[in-house]
């Protein structure tokens, strides 16, 4: 019944000027250094993975909109973000056909079935990533060393694996620092971690570039800085306490902060506005919760990495946080809940 009145010019007659597609576009800009660094460190394979993820997400979004008779929402840039994020979380030699499938699942299951942009409960890229993790547990944990010679022209056999064939793992394997710690108790040098001279998913290795991207968005008020700050502080404090208790068993807090997908997840995935709480207090609770789960999974769980699940759990908690944490309405004593 409101559909008609939507087009009437009503007050306010001026707008601040920030628009949703503009925010999304700037998130893409903020991720570009990561993409470039991924290509520099992992070569052409990483580029192929990321491009494939983006292409598949965008095509899926377009096709689904057309199929459901709506105008295409590709121009809001959100599918591009999903594609890049998915690509950045995959190993650099991940088979392209699996990548493509991941993009389809991200958009179709992660977003479209919920009702499209704004209605998705979970970060779509993580939904796609979780699917790939479950479907192809070996391929998704097959790491690859960075800065290999010849990385700019040799396409890995794994990457080019024929659809539905099991990829051949190229002879070299490079354990990620987290895996190395989890299973061998070897920790990496913090400076190497921070600058990304390590093995890992395509886009998660350079913490410094991730932080710079985050600052860019936070300054432009296109990202809620409280989320990464809450997550990282929680992880740092909790692992700091554990480190004090026994630094033989538990990794150092610096190592926890800079390893694995934590930085990428905290800055670019947990901050997805749709899946995070709406109030400033709410996002702090959300961030602290995610940080806690990350530490619990990494240290006591069976997996080396827990960021993805932590964020998905955080997304699931968001509606409840919003329900419980409501600002006190002006002129009322207490929030009615």
């Amino acid at each position: 019944m409101f559909s008609k009145t939507l087009h009437i010019s009503t007050s306010p007659h001026i707008r601040q000027g920030m628009s949703t597609d503009m925010i999304m576009r700037h998130v893409v800009y903020a991720m570009m250094p990561l993409v470039i660094f991924a290509v520099v460190s992992f070569g052409i394979n990483a580029l192929l993975v990321i491009v494939t993820a983006v292409a598949s997400s965008v095509l899926t979004e377009h096709a689904l909109c057309r199929w459901s008779g709506k105008s295409s929402t590709v121009s809001d840039w959100s599918a591009v973000i999903t594609g890049i994020l998915l690509g950045l979380t995959l190993p650099p030699i991940f088979p392209l056909w699996m990548t493509f499938l991941g993009g389809i699942v991200s958009i179709a299951i992660g977003k479209f079935v919920f009702g499209g942009l704004g209605s998705n409960a979970f970060n779509p890229a993580l939904v796609g990533r979780a699917f790939l993790q479950a479907a192809f547990p070996v391929a998704i944990t097959t790491w690859h060393p960075s800065f290999l010679e010849g990385r700019f022209y040799s396409i890995s056999k794994s990457v080019a694996a024929f659809p539905f064939s099991t990829p051949v793992v190229d002879g070299i394997s490079g354990a990620t620092p987290l895996t190395a710690f989890k299973f061998d108790k070897v920790t990496a040098d913090t400076a190497d971690l921070a600058f990304g001279f390590i093995s890992g998913s395509t886009g998660e290795t350079s913490a410094v570039l991730i932080i710079l991207g985050g600052i860019y968005l936070a300054v432009r008020k296109m990202m809620n800085w409280r989320i990464p700050v809450a997550i990282l502080t929680t992880v740092f404090v909790l692992s700091g306490i554990l480190d004090l208790i026994d630094n033989q068993v538990y990794p150092s807090p610096q190592f926890m902060l800079f390893s694995g997908g934590l930085m990428l997840g905290a800055v670019f995935m947990a901050t997805d506005m749709v899946g995070s709480p709406i109030t400033p207090k709410g996002v702090v609770v959300y961030g602290a919760f995610i940080g806690l789960i990350v530490v619990v999974i990494r240290i006591w769980g069976g997996l080396p990495e827990g960021v993805m699940y932590a964020i998905l759990l955080g997304n699931a908690l968001t509606p409840h946080i919003d329900n419980l944490i409501r600002p006190r309405v002006y002129g009322t004593k207490k929030t009615k809940s």
Partner: peptide, 8 residues
Amino acid sequence: IFPCIKCG
């Protein structure tokens, strides 16, 4: 007009 993205 875009959908609400819960930006807060």
